[in-house]
Amino acid sequence: METKIKLENITKSFGKLDVLKGISLSLKPQEVVCIIGPSGSGKSTLLRCMNRLEEVNSGSILIDGVDITDPSVDINHIRENIGMVFQHFNLFPHLSVLENVMLAPVELGKMSKEEAKANALTLLEQVGIHEKADVYPVKLSGGQKQRVAIARALAMNPDIMLFDEPTSALDPEMVKGVLNVMKDLTKRGMTMVVVTHEIGFAREVADRIIFMDQGKIVEEGKPLELLNHPQEERTIAFLNEIL
C-alpha cells in the first residue's frame, strides 16, 4: 500500500523533557488525519517534526519515501511540497497580502512574477479574500490573516498540508470561515494533518482521528468510532472534558 507520510518510532525531547515517546503513524495519499489531545501532549511537536522544524532524537520520517531525518536530505526541497499553517498565522508583516503569497514561488524559482501573481490572486479568491490583496497583514482580522496564511502555504502547490491549531487564536465568529477553507482542501485531495481542538470539524472531515497524551498515541480510529465509542480511559476522560 502506498504511503504519503510514514513515521517510525520517533522520539523527541527538549532537554530532560521527553515530548514524544515513540510515535509511529502512516498516512495514505489524500488522507485527512486530525490529532487531538490535551495541551502538552506533544501533538504540535509531532506535527513540527513532519517538516523538520523540530529535529527528532530517533526514529525515521518518510515523506513520499524519503527519510527527512537524514541530514543529507535537501530539506528545503521537501518543504516546498509541505504547506504549513500556524496558530499565530506568522504572516510577513512587511509584505502585502499579495507579496506574502507570491514570495516563495518567485524566490524559489517556481514561477515568474506574473505567474505567481495570477496564482496568488486565484488562491486569495479561493480563500475569499482577494479584495485585500494590496493590504498589509496588520489591517486584517485574525480570520482573514489565517486565510491568507493558508493561501500562502498553497502557493507552492504542495500535496501535504500541516495545520497547527489553525483556529485556536481566532475569535469564535472567525473560526467557521477558516474551517470552511480547510474543508474545501480535503475535497481537492490534499493530504492533511490537522492538530485541532475543533471536534466538530474533526468529526466531519477527518478520515481518522488520533488521540495523543503524554507523548504517545493513546488511541486512533475513524471519527465516529473514536468519538462515540472511545476505548481507552484517557480518551474518555478527555472527550468528557471538551464535549
Partner: peptide, 23 residues
Amino acid sequence: VDPGQSEAARSLGLPYNKTMRLI
C-alpha cells in the same frame, strides 16, 4: 524578530540566507 517568522519562511522551503535577507 518573532521566531514564528523564520519558521514560516523555512516551512515554505526558503533557505537560511533568503529567510534572513527577505524576512
